[in-house]
């Protein structure tokens, strides 16, 4: 007997499709339309063709912001991933101490982004902040509001404080999924601590590490609230990342056309990076399943 396909199930996904259409597709179409036009308010638009794209691609503004963004994402990945692994390796495996560690690690993740920015804004102030005062008392001239290097160190430290625990929790979950038999075999072979990490723990954590890198890269690439609250993109443009620059353009200057072109290029870069990460993740999963 021939089996008939029941296509009525497609109606079940209709609400989701409608939701996606209203929350993503229609706004995206609007942005594309704006990016080819100029607006002087009053809902009047004038066709300018590729002008905004040409202007942006040939200005230093976009490339500088992209450079800062890539540098920021690279720095935080280089710090947060090894630090997260180290923290996960040091966490107790069972007992009440393990539960306590998990709760403490989850706390920074529960704090809203703008509150994190505000906490660090006060914490790092050289006159009244605990960190700022401490660093100043050590003899360093530290002022994140006036010195670009200090601002960068503070923004990076804030991100590391906020998000390393996510990497640690993911790695911890990966570590806990390794069967005891692996450790017992390593013990019989008298493997060193490094060998256990290199040949058992690290390969078994590969899946969660790829997810951690993907999450942290994408999140840091789209960072806005925390550095905006902490430094406002300054001093000068030292910590003006892509999203901060975009908001300045769209809402500060009300340049809807250039901002739309900027956001589409930003979106394309994110789409490309996401696809690369997705492909790597799928390939890794397949390799893991085959081994």
């Amino acid at each position: 007997m021939e089996k008939t396909a029941n296509q009525r199930a497609w109606f079940l996904v209709l609400p989701v499709l409608l939701l996606v259409a209203f929350s993503s597709v229609i706004p995206m179409m609007t942005v594309v339309n704006y990016s080819f036009q100029d607006s002087f308010g009053g809902n009047e638009f004038f066709w300018v063709g590729l002008e905004w794209y040409r202007e942006l691609l040939r200005s230093e503004r976009l490339w500088d912001a992209l450079g800062r963004q890539l540098m920021f994402s690279s720095i935080i990945l280089l710090i947060e991933i090894p630090l997260g692994i180290l923290v996960a390796l040091c966490m107790p495996k069972k007992g009440w101490l393990a539960s306590l560690c998990l709760v403490l690690m989850a706390l920074p993740l529960l704090i809203p982004y703008n509150v994190v920015g505000t906490i660090w804004q006060v914490f790092a102030r050289s006159d009244i902040g605990l960190l700022g005062r401490f660093v100043t008392d050590l003899g360093f001239e530290y002022n994140y509001a006036q010195n670009a290097a200090d601002a960068w160190v503070t923004v990076v430290a804030m991100d590391v404080w906020h998000w390393t625990s996510l990497v640690a929790l993911l790695c911890y979950a990966g570590l806990r999924s390794i069967p005891d038999a692996y450790y017992q075999a390593a013990e019989i072979d008298q493997a060193s601590r490094w060998s256990v990490f290199r040949h058992i723990e690290l390969p078994k954590m590969r899946g969660v590490l790829i997810i951690a890198v993907l999450l942290r890269f994408m999140d840091s690439f789209m960072i806005y609230t925390e550095p905006f609250v902490l430094t406002g993109g300054g001093p000068g443009n030292a910590t003006t990342f892509l999203s901060i620059d975009l908001v300045k353009m769209a809402l500060g200057q009300f340049d809807l056309g250039p901002a739309a072109a900027f956001s589409l290029m930003y979106f394309l870069v994110i789409l490309l990076i996401s696809y690369v990460f997705y492909t790597v993740m799928i390939a890794s999963d397949k390799e893991e399943a085959q081994s």
């Binding site: 229609i26 179409m29 609007t30 594309v32 339309n33 704006y34 080819f36 036009q37 607006s39 809902n43 638009f45 066709w47």
Partner: peptide, 15 residues
């Protein structure tokens, strides 16, 4: 739909 600011080229692109 005025606020979406449709133009013929962008409409053709999406089509």
């Amino acid at each position: 739909m005025d606020w979406i600011a449709w133009t013929l080229p962008t409409a053709l692109f999406f089509a």
